[in-house]
Write a protein that binds this DNA or RNA. Structure first.
Lengths: 334, 334
DNA sequence: ACCCTTGCGTATAACGATATAGTCGAGGCC
DNA sequence: GGCCTCGACTATATCGTTATACGCAAGGGT
């Protein structure tokens, strides 16, 4: 490896002069500067970022820590990357899927210190585990769990989005709406908050809430959704609408409906959540709650920058607004 | 930040003893060991990975560098991660999308040295740019471009997969098959290799090859595909099959076909490439070429480990086999 | 003539870990 | 008793950069 001192020797100057030429932290005379740059070019020198980090305490790198790389998180990551890069920093993704139940533990707090800041997506992490994380590293949390108050946090208006989608299907004539991927527990998490919105819409419309219409889905996957909805259909439980708690689940649902010869939206209306790309293109288009990824990304990055600039700033807890995108899988109000 | 020397002072030993306790590189007496561990616990010490890297030259981290985080690459990344972790290392994702035309330059060779090894996905990188990368860092290339012989490289059997998919639709009765996302150039890249397979299938069947059936798609996106196919339909060019060079494009195609009232597969057969999750669930199921992601991931990681263990090993160039997954978007042979 | 600034460069000490060579007492062997 | 080995622990140099203080000549103000 070619180091700064190699360059310094080649150019006949001290290492600090090389450093100053490259970082432009302090002025260097034109002839000296030229000789240094020539030496850099000739030797093919590249700065050692590790040494810089150790000494300068700065990596110019931000990590986004996600449970898995695909689908939802991949799309969000692509929104966040340009915003981080606009500030002259780099974004890298780390993943915790190995042990979803202990996101930080499996990652190791030590790794957090490799970065200037961390966006941590908390899907399965319990608040008390999070509370044990004692780090001064700037961290902004993303996700639908409750988190300790001292952390900055961006979450979605899950309940409101679910209410909008469900109410829309009720207005379109549905009276027996499944919540696919729902769960009966009361802990605040993505799935329970969205089920709560489904309930709210029912109550507001004066419709009964029936627990049999809450259908869990294994792994929140499309395959799990297809199987789960297939079983509901086979069971004979009557339904005329499906609120899928994610678009990935909606995709599994549309597959199961098609396999059973049920027409969307004529026999069954369908709505999802997340507004993934795919929802726009799967015929007849899946009505979905748009969580405004660009907006969430912008807020998260804004909070992180603020925290990096001022470690003592009071924590902010944002709830990003959502809106319903109506497509062919639901009917207009009757 | 609490350092090893804080721990050493607290435990009344030298820093090397702390290091030896934690790394288990050399034996430490039981009472001393206990005091050290107690001090680590009491102070909440976490090793500084940057300092370790600088001194020990090892990060236990592998990077996967991709053009973007979503869809195809996200799915591949989730396959690769467990394999890397199984060897006791960490996987992080870096992205180059900022300037697709200069993947390495935008990333900076310097960043490569932050990792023990790098899996570099070359989508838009020209061979001569790659040739300029002079690094001793273990690098394995993934992707469909030609690359300099000195690099390890894993690519797909693009032409063969395209040939299989096209031949299958010909056997099912199609005679005028579009290649959506195709390009007429002859440089080896994903899109041209797949177009070549489409041509081969036509020649083998004694069918004419018509350049008007090669339809480019903006950004290889679903939206671009929908627009492009919409224009073909509007133009009146007759066709009864679509070979989409990626599943993302196939998704746009199915949307355009539905919008025009064309039935799949009755009026138009459709096949894609990549076998993304979505293809399994979009009714009626999209026939697709399965590039065997797990196999590709396994080979890539195997090559990287080999290269990390032996920098002088001869470069391997692998072409991963593909197979056709037949679903409802195509007809059985007539 | 004197002092102070300014511009340009250098020498040296960190950052926090690990590698290497050493120290030191206890015990074994002849 | 003398010598050697061995286990347990320590002192110091080092990885490649940047922060800090300093040296030194040229120029400007009084």
């Amino acid at each position: 490896m070619v180091t700064m001192s190699d360059v310094a020797r080649e150019a006949g100057v001290s290492v600090m002069t090389v450093s100053n030429v490259l970082s432009e932290r302090r002025p260097v005379g034109a002839p000296t500067r030229a000789r240094v740059l020539a030496a850099v070019e000739a030797l093919g020198f590249e700065v050692n970022l590790t040494a810089r980090h150790l000494r300068a305490g700065r990596t110019d790198t931000v990590a986004l820590v996600v449970p898995s790389f695909h689908d939802y998180f991949g799309e969000v990551a692509d929104e966040i990357a340009p915003l981080v890069e606009a500030e002259g920093r780099h974004l890298v993704l780390e993943r915790t899927a190995a042990r979803p139940e202990q996101e930080i533990a499996s990652l190791g707090v030590a790794r957090l210190h490799l970065y200037d800041g961390v966006l941590l997506s908390v899907a399965a992490l319990e608040p008390e585990q999070l509370d044990r994380v004692r780090t001064t590293k700037p961290v902004v949390l993303l996700g639908e769990r409750d988190v300790p108050g001292r952390f900055d946090h961006v979450r979605l208006a899950n309940e409101e989005g679910a209410r909008l989608a469900t109410a829309h299907m009720i207005a379109g004539g549905s009276r027996r709406i499944l919540v696919l991927g729902g769960a009966l527990e009361t802990t605040h998490m993505m799935t329970t908050d969205r089920r709560a919105g489904w309930e709210t819409a029912h109550r507001e419309a004066g419709l009964p809430v029936d627990d049999r219409y809450v259908v869990p889905v294994a792994n929140y996957s499309s395959a799990g959704a297809r199987d789960a909805l297939g079983e509901v259909i086979a069971s004979g439980l009557p339904f005329d609408g499906v609120f899928a708690v994610t678009d990935v689940i909606a995709l599994g649902a549309i597959s199961a409906l098609a396999a059973s010869g049920l027409r969307v939206p004529d026999d069954v209306q369908l709505a999802g959540f997340d507004d993934l790309d795919v929802s726009n293109f799967v015929p007849p288009g899946i009505t979905s709650v748009d969580p405004n990824h660009p907006g969430v990304a912008r807020e998260a990055v804004r909070l992180l920058h603020r925290r990096m600039a001022d470690a003592g700033a009071p924590a902010e807890h944002l709830v990003a607004p959502v809106r319903l995108v109506v497509r062919g899988s639901t009917r207009a109000a009757r």
